[in-house]
């Protein structure tokens, strides 16, 4: 069984937001809500100053705090490690939104909770997530963490630096940031299991 993960090489990201647009179209995300966004911030002080772009979305944690809080089991984790929401079971109580440490979930105007699915419907067809396919600088890689030959495993192996968001929570995210250019950067995770 594959264990899907995504890596984003921040040294290659140009902040074009093509991934956000592709996601919006592919998943028919309605106005006012987003599965994926680009966080932009200035880092450093003059003259040692640059802008960092960081695409953010659901991290498909291995230990997702949003799943056990769901009273109806609408939030669930697939065997491949994708964290998904079944809109038919969701009562939109908002518990998972409050429980997500990354603010990655939102109330869909149709009345259920939604978020990034890693384009599960495309994965099922053997295709890549829309954001990965559309990235003009190939900063995103996707694949099976358990397969050493997968693009994501290779990218992780070759990266000079690898980080995840808020590693101290122990959620074990499967969205990795590679080669973060900022001096402060993200909090470095010391042990990321991708064996």
């Amino acid at each position: 069984m594959p264990r899907y993960a995504m890596a984003i090489d921040l040294s290659l990201c140009v902040g074009c937001a093509a991934c956000a647009v592709a996601c919006k179209m592919e998943n028919e995300v309605p106005p006012g809500v987003y599965n994926l966004w680009i966080r932009e911030r200035e880092v450093g002080t003059y003259p040692d100053l640059w802008v960092e772009f960081r695409p953010e979305q659901c991290l498909h944690c291995e230990n997702p705090p949003c799943v056990p809080v769901c009273p109806t089991g609408a939030s669930y984790q697939t065997e491949e490690g994708l964290v998904l929401v079944d809109p038919r079971k969701c009562i939109a109580c908002g518990a998972c939104i409050a429980a997500c440490p990354y603010d990655a979930r939102y109330l869909h105007p149709a009345g259920h909770v939604s978020k990034c699915t890693f384009c599960a419907h495309r994965i099922a067809q053997g295709r890549l997530p829309a954001c990965v396919e559309t990235c003009p600088t190939l900063c995103r890689t996707f694949g099976d963490l358990d397969d050493p030959e997968s693009p994501v495993s290779k990218a992780l192996k070759e990266a000079g630096r690898m980080d995840v968001l808020r590693p101290e929570l122990g959620t074990r995210p499967k969205l990795f940031y590679l080669n973060a250019p900022s001096k402060k950067g993200l909090t470095r995770e010391k042990e990321v299991r991708h064996d």
Binding site: P68, C70, P71, T72, I91
Partner: peptide, 26 residues
Amino acid sequence: FDLGHMERFYYVYLRPNFRSMMAWMV
């Protein structure tokens, strides 16, 4: 009233997830 899907409240009885504190509450 706070539920997005008010008509589905009975799902917590039919398909409860007992790891969820909210399900326990109901």
